[in-house]
Design a protein around this nucleic acid. Structure first.
Lengths: 198, 198
DNA sequence: TGGTTGACAGAACGAATGTTCGGTACCGTA
DNA sequence: TACGGTACCGAACATTCGTTCTGTCAACCA
């Protein structure tokens, strides 16, 4: 007994759990897991959970409640080269695993999101409706894409310098360069971009 | 009894729960909640939970397990209109956003990420190095941006039709339309995009 | 001064939870 | 043909869960 599990557990189980979690934001009880997995013995659920825990997909709170493990939220990054013959490239070797939040957000408390209005940055690949990930900070370097506050509105622009004053340059020839009178108020620097197309 | 609760519940309770959830990704049991809140009666926890549920911060799975409610993750999205003088950037109109993962990913088990190579889709605002969020599915509609497998490589292109055959159209005049010989193999449909600029 | 209300405590209880253990049926190997 | 391993079932069980109901106490009117 108490053997090592060398078999990789049925990935379908994990996926079903992840989908359940995505919907409810909670790990269900063993009996619910049983029906979710099409299993009828809680003892077997228990064993599966043990293996997922061993693999880092599940864990326990200090109060011995089942919770997602460190690898639970990992997203697979499909490689851009597909292995010949392999049916599922996402499962093949050499996958990196990322959660998008971790990928984009370095300092959660200083990071916020701003929705893009208009197409003044279209040449920088920034479209209307996109979400800009902003790291809040009062100053930036020339060349950075910054979120500035102009006339009480957020504006996303390139930061540039003309002589001794800072200006905001759009990435769209149809828009003018903004030369703020007085001090330029910078909300933060763009650290990333998120677009939802579906 | 059974009076309406007009009092807004102690916000500290909610914050403690949110912190706990942020750490463990799970809603604890009533007895743990009790110690978390510094309460010693489960009956009172039960009452508090009732009110949080009424307010939309907590909810229940179909199996009557306590779970985060719709408002649990409410995070202010910085609004594009700034109140004059006020630091408070958000208006009620603003979207409530959970996490970026939740925003982009509907079905975790069918979603993967593909890194963009080249600039063939630059006119669609898709740059080299961006991550495409792909929902895996074997077919798509004309006009969708799809991730197809051509010559054992992932390709991101618009799906279009010429007469009776499907073709892949780049969003860059410098690139040719791809007319696959044989069946066009579609890996999935683009559901979003993630770019890291820092 | 007395009465009501809201915030909590405490016990009691049935239902649900997760563990343990023993059992079965199907492998592949030797 | 026997054998060990693996995938699963099923029952028994102590523990824990969340509910319900009753009780205390300070605050706040009136």
């Amino acid at each position: 007994m108490a053997l090592k599990s060398q078999q990789p557990l049925d990935p379908a189980y994990l996926e079903k759990l992840q989908d359940y979690y995505a919907e409810h934001k909670v790990i269900p009880s063993y009996s619910v897991l049983a029906t979710l997995w099409g299993i009828s013995a809680k003892s077997w659920v228990s064993e599966c959970v043990r293996r997922f825990e061993e693999a880092g997909y599940l864990g326990w709170t200090p109060d011995r409640q089942l919770k997602p493990g460190p690898r639970f939220f990992e997203r697979r990054l499909a490689h851009d080269t597909v292995q010949a013959g392999l049916p599922n490239p996402a499962l093949s070797e050499g996958y990196d695993l990322v959660t998008i939040d971790d990928y984009l957000i370095r300092i959660p408390s200083k990071t916020s999101l701003v929705r893009v209005k208009g197409d003044s940055m279209i040449d920088a690949g920034i479209h209307e409706g996109d979400l800009i990930v902003v790291e809040q900070q009062p100053n930036a370097n020339v060349g950075d894409i910054v979120v500035a506050i102009v006339d009480n509105e957020f504006t996303v622009k390139y930061l540039d310098r003309e002589k001794s004053t800072f200006v905001l340059k759009p990435a769209n020839k149809a828009y003018p360069v903004i030369r703020p009178k007085g001090r330029l108020e910078i909300f933060g620097v763009m650290a990333g971009l998120v677009r939802k197309t579906r």
